[in-house]
Each structure stands twice: as C-alpha cells, then as structure tokens.
C-alpha cells in the first residue's frame, strides 16, 4: 500500500515496513522513529546503519546476532529502542521485519 512519510510517497506493507529500501531516506527513518516516540541520536544511527548493512549482506537478523555484533549489546539495544527493539529498529531502518524467534 502507499503511504506518505516525511513528504514522500512510498510503499509499505500492512505493518508499515517499507517494501522497497531504495525509497528510504533519513527523514523517513526519523519520521517512523517519531511515531514510535523515539528521537534518533548518533547511537541510534550507528545501530540503524548496522542493520541496513546486515540486510544488504542478506544476513538473517536476530537479537542474538545484534548482541554479538560489537555495535550494540542487547541491554543497550532495548534501551535505545524500547518495546520490541528488533521490530522497531528494522522498521526505522527501512528493512524487512526479521522472521526470527530468537
């Protein structure tokens, strides 16, 4: 479906995840973050860039993998993106929601 985020027409799925990463930009990320009541700091951006790189390399994301990334530990990940960090952070990053149970 179509959505207008940060003044740009983009396509998202029914959960609000971008379906085409090429449509993503930082303003869209900030706008999705604001919806989740998150103000993005440089630490947030480091995590977001990491998630985007992992997605580009087609790595399946999980909480465990993020925790072992060396970019952020699990505790900080939950602190940066409270309430469902992996789901929220990937949505902001414009990458698909990970189908992970761990």
């Amino acid at each position: 479906m179509n959505a207008s985020i940060a003044g740009k027409e983009i396509t998202v799925n029914e959960e609000g995840y971008l379906t085409d990463f090429n449509q993503w930009n930082e303003q869209i990320g900030e706008s999705i973050a604001a919806e989740a009541n998150i103000t993005l700091t440089p630490r947030h951006w480091e995590v977001i860039k990491y998630l985007q790189n992992e997605h580009k390399s087609q790595v399946a994301l999980s909480i465990r993998r993020v925790g072992k990334s060396g970019v952020v530990d699990i505790k900080e990940f939950y602190a940066l993106f409270p309430n469902a960090p992996l789901k929220t952070a990937t949505k902001i990053a414009g990458v698909p929601k990970p189908a992970s149970c761990i």
Binding site: I63, R64, R65
Partner: peptide, 17 residues
C-alpha cells in the same frame, strides 16, 4: 539455527529485562 546455549540464553534474557 543460531540457538544460544543455556548460559548465553540466560545472559540474553537478563539483558533483555
């Protein structure tokens, strides 16, 4: 399938709150 061992899983749970 990327499943942690029991000790690491406890670390993950604890860090996750």
């Amino acid at each position: 399938i990327d499943m942690p061992d029991v000790h690491e899983f406890l670390d993950i749970l604890s860090a996750s709150g």
